[in-house]
């Protein structure tokens, strides 16, 4: 079929390869050591040069190597990224909630209120002129009409209506609200009413002759049976007083402690404390014990300051003090109001 020469060459090559195979399979150094090293040197040199030449193109390897699982990896990373982002956002929200809950627990713990915590789930429309919120606790959680609603800062409002799982709360700033309030550190009482404007309440004192200063705090006076308002809940701070002492009506503007626009976690007081916590829930009261004793009732002169710190008995003052005056210990506790007491009736 093929020429004699072709057959001869083929046979020679075939025999040569078989010889190589057999000789190589005998193991050991074999007869090819020097030939192999020479060959390796030649080819290896070429491969070195080739390696240098081709090295810029080997970046393709990375592309190729990841090509197969890239889509899968992208999908995985995207999912993980979403999950982590959700976690971050959620943890920030959780932290804020935890802070609010902490404040709430502080208030309820100090005042010994039995509360049911709840979260705001809806807010009434502002164009209806009503300040109401909906919380996610209702009948099933023991909430009934006319219970006080507080948060970590103070009074928020009262429960207006209840369903099984939700309750509607009228906020403190609603124009329909009026709360019996007491000036912290004294027994002056008055009626606090909402104005319908955020950050502004009106406080009308019963005794027009009593002293009232910007910076003083108000707490709830308490209703019969603790409903709708439990006693001792911080309400707000006096911002300004209109009129002078002795006028027929003195109206003070109060800034509520609770910021009604950023409500998150609130607590519904389902059982008021057995004893009126008086002023102990006020934010300042907690820092009181180490502060110098400066009763918020007006002192005639600085010298009485020393005497009042020497004896816990309140020094006589020009202020008209009702019979149910604060006990000495409470006098000491709430005395930390930073503003030195001045003014009053003069």
């Amino acid at each position: 079929m093929f020429s004699r020469r072709t057959r001869f060459v083929l046979a020679a090559l075939f025999i040569t390869t078989l010889t190589f195979v057999i000789l190589d399979l005998r193991g050991g150094q074999g007869p090819f050591t020097s030939f192999r090293s020479a060959m390796s040197g030649a080819v290896g040199g070429g491969e070195q040069v080739g390696g240098v030449i081709f090295s810029p193109f080997l970046g393709v390897r990375d592309w190729w190597g990841t090509w197969g699982d890239q889509r899968e990896r992208i999908a995985g990373l995207t999912a993980e990224n979403d999950e982590l982002r959700l976690l971050v956002e959620r943890s920030a929200a959780d932290r804020a909630r935890a802070e609010q809950l902490d404040g709430l627990l502080r208030v309820s713990g100090v005042g010994r209120y039995r509360i049911v915590p709840a979260e705001v789930v809806a807010v009434g429309p502002a164009q209806e002129f009503a300040w109401t919120i909906t919380i996610d606790a209702g009948n099933a959680d023991g909430i009934q009409r006319d219970m006080s609603v507080i948060n970590g800062q103070g009074l928020v409002g009262r429960v207006q209506s209840v369903t099984k799982n939700t309750a509607t709360v009228v906020l403190l700033v609603d124009a329909s609200i009026s709360v019996g309030a007491r000036v912290g550190g004294s027994s002056e009482i008055g009626i606090l009413s909402g104005t319908g404007r955020q950050d502004s309440l009106e406080f009308q004192m019963i005794d027009p002759g009593a002293g009232l200063e910007p910076g003083q705090s108000l707490v709830t006076f308490g209703s019969k049976g603790g409903r709708p308002y439990s006693p001792g809940i911080p309400i707000g701070e006096v911002v300004s007083v209109a009129g002078t002492a002795g006028q027929l009506t003195r109206i003070a503007t109060i800034r509520p402690f609770a910021d009604v626009s950023t409500l998150g976690v609130v607590g519904v007081v389902i059982r008021p404390p057995r004893e009126d916590p008086r002023d102990s829930v006020l934010p300042d009261a907690t820092r009181a014990p180490t502060a110098p004793t400066v009763p918020s009732i007006v002192l005639p002169s600085p010298t009485s300051l020393a005497s009042s710190s020497a004896s816990p008995t309140p020094s006589p003052s020009a202020t008209v003090t009702p019979s149910g005056s604060p006990t000495p210990s409470q006098e000491v506790e709430q005395a930390a109001t930073p503003e030195p007491a001045t003014g009053g009736s003069n």
Partner: peptide, 14 residues
């Protein structure tokens, strides 16, 4: 005979 080939010599040639 090239480096990085490990089979018995001659098989690839065959």
């Amino acid at each position: 005979f090239a480096p990085s080939t490990a089979g018995p010599i001659g098989v690839v040639a065959l």
